[in-house]
Design a protein around this nucleic acid. Structure first.
Lengths: 370, 370
DNA sequence: TCTCTTGCCGAAACCGGTTTCGTAAACAAT
DNA sequence: ATTGTTTACGAAACCGGTTTCGGCAAGAGA
């Protein structure tokens, strides 16, 4: 009887040219036990003897059994898929970021035999709708939330719906969220330290958009660096909101036109720092000599410009992996507030910083002349 | 009885703080018909009367019923998910490409209420393993295969396993695959035409890696352009295998050192074309004056360099959408050989091409001197 | 009027898992 | 020896859908 069934199944599979999957019933039949027992054995239920557990494990392994996430999901509600909703309408800020990041997430996910469901949306309300849909359709058991805003509607939504998530970045009010972040504030502090060591005393800061929480942190880092170096903070040398090259160029121009312009600039974001080159050229100044620049992100374009941009490189691939690991642990039930990690960015020296070859006064004169 | 059940369910949902989904049974109960009937009505089975079909449709809509893809999948084997396996180990060739492309795929997918499962792997065998796994686990009903190779192992695997797929690019031997592609050969032909119109007669060609099928096509386009312009083809002015900036710089150097160097270069790939700037500078030549350059891809970096690179821009977002649409149709059973579309790249004029300001001889002399 | 189709739908099996429930056997306690 | 607990597992219900099967009623043909 059993044999006949098996033969029939095999024959059917052969006709359909479909090498049929090994199901949990196959394993149970092979062992002559109930399929419920197999399920409980594989899921470490306490009411299964060690002997049986071992036996089942071995047989399942031998037969190449792998549970079908879909089938599990309809009962458990979880399908071993992590969700990632990306924003499309950012100028291009995520372009360099994306590929490495995805690689890291995907690697960590498949190492744990999870999969990755990706969606993109225009941001704002649409993004929330998309996440809602993915949760409703059980296409994701939890989410990675990249580019954290100071007050993040996505985090609120997920918390309200009781869906696990981990932030790439930190929130203003810490709450009990899980997060991973690169300590950008440390990098900013080190940037100031390095410039001060070069001999700079007037160091400006071009920050990113204040809607992102990282901007607040990086500004703190800059301020701390200034204080530690014993330098005065001049609020007129701080500009924020520069996320693109154009905005960076604009901010650089503004700062260099001050009465007492800076001889060095710290940027919160590479894309903005690249704008400094255009402005410098326009004003007849040389980056790395007349005006030093240190930035943050470590996008490939840093190596493109002349002189190469000194920047703190962020390992987005690693970040993706860490985030995924944290998220999986969160989904498995670990307390979010215990799931927090950070890493540091590493300095990639280019030629864009060095001892000041012009004084603030000289720069002011040349800017006025040009 | 039914009312009690409903109340119990609601109460349970309230306790779990989980607004329970509307299931197919809910719809069936509300109408007082069998759930099988609801299923068949919604799936357009022919043995359901129009009256019933309408009634079910309306009620389902009204109740906000949406089938759970997971549950459908365990019976049908399909879960309305499209698979995308990306390669991590390409130098960065996909970096600009990725974000737009993903946006397109994701948009088209969610418009059809499908989802997108993404995996990345190092290419080669690992990529095949990854696809295999996704198929086994039914995480993808079909695949988009980007960056088609002349002989593509991924396409063979999928064909063998009888999994629908659509290529981004064409195969050497056409077969019966579905594909979408941008007609790069047309762009190359137009590039030559444009340069010839400028007055160039010695036009070189720096091709991409011959493992990619697009390289063969683009070379054909270049050759056709030369023929149509009535120009002699000099095989010593054709180099292939340049996919990176370094390789592009190298190739440019080689060509400009020929006895009779070209006054214009056509590149198959932007990343390579960017290398021409470095080489030109090194040789004391000016891009756009001494040597004209036209390229292909339209990556953002084109606008970065001076003079901006004239390039044929590829709309990767649109490509992603088209590919997704084709794939869904293929999964739904349409014949792959009928699922083929193409589009053209559009010229983005920069300042990197123009009438030759130096003759081939002059260039040769200056290269020899430098 | 009586059969033979045909159209339409209900009932139930099924997909591949998980989880509840009940109980036989082994063991401990009396 | 009897009773009460555990331990470990089988049987069956269940998750949310799809698909098969069978039969009733209406219409067609004789």
């Amino acid at each position: 009887m059993i044999r006949e069934d098996a033969l029939a199944t095999v024959a059917k599979a052969a006709r359909a040219n479909t090498s049929r999957r090994v199901t949990i019933s196959d394993v149970a039949n092979a062992l002559g036990i109930a399929k419920g027992t197999v399920s409980r054995a594989l899921n470490n239920y306490p009411d299964i003897s060690d002997a049986t557990r071992q036996k089942v494990r071995r047989k399942a392994e031998f037969m190449g059994y792998r549970p079908l996430a879909q089938a599990q999901a309809i009962r458990t509600g979880r399908s071993r898929a992590i969700g990632l909703v990306l924003q499309t309408d950012i100028p291009g800020a995520q372009r360099p970021f994306l590929s490495d990041f995805l690689a890291g997430v995907s690697k960590a996910a498949s190492d744990a035999s999870w999969t990755l469901t990706v969606a993109m949306s225009a941001g704002g309300q649409e993004m929330l709708t998309t996440m809602d849909r993915l949760v409703d359709e059980r296409k994701a058991d939890g989410f990675i939330v990249p580019r954290t805003f100071s007050h993040d509607a996505r985090a609120e939504l997920l918390r309200r719906r009781n869906v696990p998530f981990v932030l790439y970045g930190r929130l203003q009010e810490i709450g009990d969220s899980a997060w991973f972040d690169i300590l950008g504030e440390e990098a900013m502090r080190e940037a100031v330290e390095r410039l001060a060591a070069h001999g700079h005393t007037r160091i400006g800061f071009v920050n990113g958009g204040k809607e992102y929480n990282f901007s607040h942190l990086r500004e703190e880092g800059y301020l701390r660096g200034m204080t530690e170096a014993g330098l005065d903070v001049d609020q007129s040398l701080i500009i924020s909101g520069a996320m693109t090259t154009e905005a960076g160029a604009e901010a650089t121009l503004t700062l260099l036109r001050r009465a007492e312009p800076p001889t060095a600039l710290v940027f919160a974001v590479d894309m903005a720092a690249l704008g400094a080159y255009a402005t410098a050229e326009r004003l007849g100044l040389t980056v790395g000599k007349d005006v030093s620049v240190i930035s943050y992100d470590g996008i490939p374009e840093c190596a493109w410009v002349q002189p190469p941009l000194t920047s703190f490189r962020v390992d987005n691939k690693m970040a993706g992996s860490r985030l995924t690991e944290l998220l999986i642990r969160s989904i498995r039930g670990e307390e979010p507030s215990t799931l927090r990690k950070s890493a540091k960015a590493t300095l990639w020296p280019g030629g864009s910083d060095g001892p000041p070859e012009s004084t603030s006064d000289e720069i002011a004169r040349r800017v006025a002349a040009g």
